[in-house]
């Protein structure tokens, strides 16, 4: 009797392990399939439609129906908007992370934290709508310009990456041992000196990861950017001129580009480029973390 029950438990255990492992394997399978399908479809432009990768990467003329596939305007748009977001949102996010890990009284943290969670939850299309109806008119009035463009996109992205950067920097700062805070204080350092000279350097690799994930979030953001960029497929002349990004152009054109056309293939190539950037960022993160352990 006991033996039977033990046998059953043993069998359950094996079956369970099978389920657990196959569920885990789905993650591996998924990323492999995504990479494979995008690698294939994203290169059709080059070996089926005979567009040179160099033209795609560095060409500045874009006309989907006219057979012009220079994606440089979008690459530049993506990079500039993301760069702006990191320059503003990176330091601001780290500063707020410092606030939560070093300064915030418990009561304050408990009221501020849910606000951050709500900001994470607001859909990007709503951020786009806020940007379009709130920020763009504001920029237009302030700078006597159209209003939409890289500046608007950069500001919206800065806000959108904040929650990511804040919570990851807070985590990175919290794991710095308390003994370092005490050691610094015992030498007569002020709280700010401890933060800026000991804690931030000690948490550097974790903070780098926070910022890199902010980059990843910003570069892949689509609708918030599409609504405020102005969508002009040209190399932007200024932060105030209408522009386009890789993501926004995909969403703009995908509905129009016929299946099996070079136009659609070019959009797949842009998606592949985004995917490669994301994978590159993951690699960077692993390098940053490896530095910490050695």
């Amino acid at each position: 009797m006991v033996g039977v029950r033990a046998n059953k438990a043993h069998r359950d255990e094996r079956v369970a392990l099978g389920f657990l492992m196959s569920s885990s394997a789905i993650f591996v399978l998924a990323i492999v399939l995504i990479l494979a399908f995008l690698a294939y479809n994203g290169t059709l432009l080059f070996w089926q439609d005979h567009v040179s990768p160099l033209t795609f990467l560095f060409g500045t003329d874009w006309d989907g129906f006219g057979g012009q596939f220079g994606a440089a305007p979008f690459i530049i748009g993506s990079l500039v908007a993301t760069g702006f977001a990191i320059l503003v949102g990176g330091p601001l996010g780290v500063a707020i992370g410092l606030f939560f890990s070093e300064l915030a009284p418990k009561r304050v943290a408990e009221t501020f934290k849910p606000a951050i969670e709500v900001l994470v939850g607001i859909p990007s299309i709503v951020y786009g709508w806020l940007g379009l109806t709130l920020l763009v008119p504001f920029i237009a009035r302030t700078f006597h310009a159209e209003g939409d463009g890289l500046l608007a996109a950069g500001i919206v992205l800065s806000i959108m990456i904040l929650p990511t950067v804040i919570s990851l920097s807070e985590d990175a700062l919290r794991v710095v041992p308390n003994s370092l805070r005490e050691g610094s204080a015992a030498l007569g350092a002020t709280r700010w000196e401890t933060m800026s000279r000991v804690l931030v350097p000690a948490a550097a690799s974790g903070l780098a990861v926070a910022v890199i994930l902010g980059v990843a979030r910003a570069i892949g953001e689509t609708l918030a950017v599409q609504l405020v960029l102005g969508n002009a497929a040209v190399v932007p002349k200024s932060l105030l001129a209408p522009a386009a990004a890789l993501t926004s152009e995909i969403v703009m054109d995908m509905g129009d580009a016929p299946e099996h056309s070079a136009f659609r293939h070019a959009l797949f190539s842009m998606a592949l480029l985004l995917l490669l950037i994301a994978m590159g960022l993951i690699t960077l993160i692993h390098l940053a973390l490896r530095r910490r352990t050695t």
Binding site: P177, S179, L180, E182, G183, S184, A185, A186, L187, G188, A189, V198, P201, A202
Partner: peptide
């Protein structure tokens, strides 16, 4: 704390 320094139980050098 400038005038009264402190050494702790566990050595806590800064990662510098």
């Amino acid at each position: 704390r400038h005038r009264i320094g402190m050494v702790f139980q566990r050595p806590n050098p800064f990662p510098k």
